[in-house]
Amino acid sequence: MEAVLRGHTAVVGVGNPDHGDDGAGVRLAERLLAAGCANVFVAGVTPEQTAPSLARLGFERLLFLDAVDFGGAPGSVVLLGGREIQSRFPQVSTHKLSLGTLARMLELDRGTQVWLLGMQPLNLNGTALSEVMEQTVQALACLLQEIIQPAPPGMAK
């Protein structure tokens, strides 16, 4: 993770908190913001509106945080680079534009490196995270807080 977050990197929480574990990326980003981490953004269900703006702002890398079905055990985590995102998630998505398509667009057009920290969902119903996803989000928040630079004093969260 340290290598992925090296350089001018934005961390982008993606997902729908109204659909259970699909909100894991948003919940993780919110925890990072509350902990004072810099360059963390909440895109929700519209990463295609947030990510190009961040690339134009000069972020060399974007790390998406999102619940994705990659066939793992509920709560397990996968880290994928841009090409892997494109091959695994070419167009099927709960977002208006798939992360695979968005990754390809950003890497080709802007030269921005794109990564996905994907979390395997258990339940997509209700507004609460499943217990296993809550544990995953908590563990990742602790890990990422140690790596991500704190926001400068006085900077709005």
Score class of each variant (00 low, 15 high):
Pro47Met: 10
Glu48Ala: 09
Gln49Ser: 14
Gln49His: 13
Thr50His: 07
Thr50Trp: 03
Thr50Asn: 03
Ala51Leu: 12
Ser53Gly: 12
Leu54Ser: 07
Leu54Val: 02
Ala55Leu: 10
Arg56Leu: 15
Arg56Thr: 08
Leu57Glu: 12
Leu57Asn: 11
Phe59Cys: 12
Glu60Arg: 13
Glu60Phe: 05
Glu60Gly: 14
Arg61Met: 10
Leu62Val: 08
Leu62Glu: 10
Leu62Phe: 04
Leu63Lys: 09
Leu63Ala: 12
Leu63Gly: 11
Leu65Arg: 07
Asp66Pro: 04
Ala67Tyr: 05
Ala67Lys: 01
Val68Ser: 11
Val68Lys: 02
Asp69Gln: 14
Gly71Arg: 04
Gly71Phe: 09
Gly72Ser: 10
Gly72Pro: 05
Ala73Lys: 15
Pro74Gln: 04
Pro74Thr: 10
Gly75Phe: 05
Gly75Ser: 06
Ser76Trp: 06
Val77His: 04
Leu79Thr: 11
Leu80Trp: 10
Gly81Asp: 15
Gly81Ser: 13
Arg83Gly: 10
Arg83Ser: 14
Arg83Asp: 15
Glu84Leu: 02
Glu84Val: 01
Ile85Pro: 00
Gln86Ile: 00
Phe89Ile: 01
Pro90Ser: 01
Pro90Val: 01
Val92Phe: 04
Ser93Asp: 00
Thr94Arg: 06
His95Tyr: 08
His95Met: 02
His95Asn: 07
Lys96Leu: 11
Lys96Phe: 05
Leu97Asp: 01
Leu97Met: 14
Ser98His: 03
Ser98Val: 01
Leu99Lys: 04
Gly100Val: 03
Thr101Gln: 13
Thr101Met: 12
Ala103Glu: 02
Arg104Gln: 13
Leu106Tyr: 10
Glu107His: 08
Glu107Gly: 13
Leu108Asp: 14
Asp109His: 10
Thr112Leu: 10
Val114Leu: 08
Val114Cys: 11
Val114Arg: 07
Leu117Gly: 03
Gly118Thr: 00
Gln120Thr: 02
Asn123Thr: 12
Asn123His: 12
Thr127Asp: 11
Ala128Ser: 13
Leu129Gln: 05
Leu129Asp: 08
Ser130Val: 06
Ser130Ile: 05
Ser130Glu: 06
Glu131Ala: 15
Val132Ile: 13
Val132Glu: 14
Met133Leu: 15
Glu134Asp: 14
Glu134Gly: 15
Gln135Ser: 14
Val137Leu: 02
Ala139Thr: 07
Ala139Ser: 12
Leu140Pro: 06
Leu140Met: 13
Leu140Gly: 03
Leu144Asp: 07
Leu144Ser: 05
Gln145Leu: 06
Gln145Thr: 15
Glu146Tyr: 07
Glu146Gln: 15
Ile147Ser: 07
Ile147Asp: 08
Ile147Phe: 11
Ile147Val: 15
